[in-house]
Amino acid sequence: MTEYKLVVVGAGGVGKSALTIQLIQNHFVDEYDPTIEDSYRKQVVIDGETCLLDILDTAGQEEYSAMRDQYMRTGEGFLCVFAINNTKSFEDIHHYREQIKRVKDSEDVPMVLVGNKCDLPSRTVDTKQAQDLARSYGIPFIETSAKTRQGVDDAFYTLVREIRKHKEKMSKDGKKKKKKSKTKCVIM
């Protein structure tokens, strides 16, 4: 069974824990209790493949930012979460993405942009803004509501699919490099 290491990042209060708990335990946590770091595991079937999701729910508070490099190193894919009623959390996505790329030393890291709290009427981040940002990053965008469960499975499952595509691409690139290195030079 394939294991996928997913990391949920975003500013404090955007609903990272609520999304994760909704996926794992099928219930909505409405009281806000700032996370330092929590880890969850769940076995699911995605596109006919049974897999184990190892999900790291991270601290959004700035005082825990020193811990970010460590979990970013171990993560295979990242859910970059903002709240649709919090423009600052949307603007912060850029910083999370840049930090992930720096730590992973790669421009090509599996990510999904997630606009959470889409059940709320007080939207300050337009869907088109988020779609445009995701398009500019070359990553999928999904709106979710941890409260109603809308888009929750889709967000995590899409990230797994992005990781699969990335692994497939990397193995193809690896095979191309191996083929090239088999060419021999004969000096007579």
Rank of each mutant, 00 (worst) to 15 (best):
E3S: 13
E3Q: 06
Y4N: 09
Y4V: 05
K5A: 01
K5P: 03
K5S: 04
K5W: 00
L6D: 00
L6Y: 02
V7K: 03
G10N: 00
G10H: 00
G10I: 00
G10Y: 00
A11I: 13
G12N: 02
G12H: 02
V14A: 08
G15Y: 00
K16F: 00
K16Y: 00
S17N: 13
S17K: 01
S17P: 00
A18C: 08
A18M: 06
A18T: 07
A18P: 03
A18F: 04
L19S: 12
T20D: 11
I21H: 15
Q22V: 01
Q22E: 11
Q22H: 07
Q22C: 02
L23T: 09
I24W: 07
I24T: 13
N26Q: 06
H27L: 11
H27C: 08
H27E: 12
H27Y: 08
F28A: 09
V29T: 09
V29M: 12
V29I: 12
D30W: 06
D30K: 09
E31A: 08
E31Y: 10
E31P: 10
D33T: 08
P34F: 08
P34S: 11
P34D: 12
T35R: 06
T35K: 06
T35I: 00
I36M: 11
E37P: 00
D38I: 02
D38K: 03
D38C: 11
S39F: 04
Y40D: 11
Y40H: 13
Y40L: 11
R41T: 09
K42S: 09
K42I: 06
Q43P: 09
Q43F: 02
V44E: 10
V45Q: 04
V45Y: 08
I46D: 05
I46A: 07
G48T: 05
G48Q: 06
E49C: 05
E49M: 02
E49V: 06
T50I: 05
T50G: 08
T50V: 05
T50M: 04
T50R: 07
C51Y: 10
L52E: 13
L53Y: 03
L53T: 10
D54G: 05
D54R: 12
D54S: 11
L56K: 14
L56N: 12
D57P: 05
D57F: 15
D57V: 15
A59M: 07
G60H: 09
Q61F: 06
Q61T: 14
Q61V: 10
E62S: 09
E63W: 02
E63N: 11
E63P: 10
E63A: 03
Y64C: 12
Y64N: 14
Y64V: 12
S65R: 05
S65W: 06
S65Q: 08
S65K: 06
A66Q: 08
A66S: 12
M67H: 13
M67P: 12
M67R: 09
D69G: 04
Q70R: 09
Q70L: 05
Y71Q: 14
Y71E: 14
Y71P: 10
M72F: 12
M72E: 08
M72Q: 06
R73A: 11
T74M: 13
G75C: 15
G77Q: 00
F78Q: 00
F78A: 01
F78C: 03
F78T: 01
F78S: 01
L79C: 01
L79V: 09
L79Q: 00
C80R: 01
C80S: 01
C80Y: 12
V81F: 10
A83D: 15
A83N: 15
A83P: 13
A83M: 02
I84F: 14
I84T: 15
N85I: 09
T87H: 14
K88T: 08
S89Y: 01
S89M: 07
F90H: 07
E91K: 12
E91V: 07
D92N: 08
D92H: 09
I93L: 12
I93W: 03
H94P: 02
H94G: 02
H95E: 06
H95G: 03
Y96L: 15
R97D: 01
R97A: 15
E98W: 01
E98P: 00
K101V: 02
K101G: 03
K101M: 13
R102F: 06
R102Y: 02
V103A: 11
V103M: 09
K104E: 04
K104M: 10
D105R: 10
S106G: 12
E107P: 05
D108M: 04
D108T: 09
D108F: 07
V109F: 10
V109H: 04
V109M: 04
V109L: 03
P110R: 01
P110N: 01
P110W: 01
P110I: 01
P110A: 03
P110T: 02
M111Y: 01
M111F: 09
M111H: 00
V112D: 00
L113H: 00
V114T: 01
V114H: 00
V114W: 00
G115E: 02
N116G: 07
K117D: 05
K117R: 10
K117A: 13
C118G: 11
C118A: 07
D119W: 01
D119C: 04
D119M: 01
P121V: 10
P121L: 10
S122G: 14
S122V: 09
S122C: 09
S122L: 07
R123H: 13
T124A: 13
V125I: 11
V125C: 12
D126I: 07
D126T: 09
T127F: 14
T127K: 11
K128M: 11
K128N: 13
K128H: 13
Q129L: 12
Q129H: 13
Q129I: 14
Q129E: 12
A130K: 02
A130E: 04
A130D: 02
Q131A: 13
Q131T: 06
D132H: 06
L133F: 14
A134Y: 04
S136I: 09
S136L: 06
S136A: 08
Y137K: 06
Y137R: 03
G138T: 02
G138H: 07
G138I: 01
I139M: 14
I139C: 08
F141V: 04
F141N: 02
F141L: 09
I142G: 04
E143S: 14
T144N: 08
T144I: 08
S145M: 03
A146V: 09
K147W: 13
R149S: 14
R149Y: 08
R149L: 12
R149V: 12
Q150W: 10
Q150L: 11
Q150D: 14
G151F: 07
G151H: 04
V152W: 10
V152E: 03
D153Q: 14
D153L: 14
D154E: 14
D154I: 08
A155Y: 00
A155I: 14
F156A: 03
F156S: 02
Y157M: 15
Y157C: 14
Y157Q: 15
Y157E: 14
T158V: 04
T158R: 07
T158L: 09
L159S: 01
V160H: 05
V160F: 05
R161S: 05
E162Q: 11
I163E: 05
R164N: 11
R164E: 13
K165H: 04
H166D: 04
H166P: 02
K167L: 02
E168T: 11
E168S: 09
K169I: 13
K169Q: 07
M170E: 05
M170Y: 05
M170W: 03
K172A: 13
K172R: 12
D173T: 08
G174Y: 01
G174S: 14
G174D: 13
G174Q: 13
K175E: 07
K175H: 06
K176E: 13
K178V: 08
K178R: 07
K179M: 11
K179S: 14
K180L: 15
K180W: 05
S181N: 14
S181L: 03
K182H: 14
K182V: 07
T183R: 09
T183P: 15
T183N: 15
T183C: 13
K184A: 14
K184T: 10
C185N: 15
V186E: 15
V186P: 15
V186I: 02
M188H: 13
M188T: 15
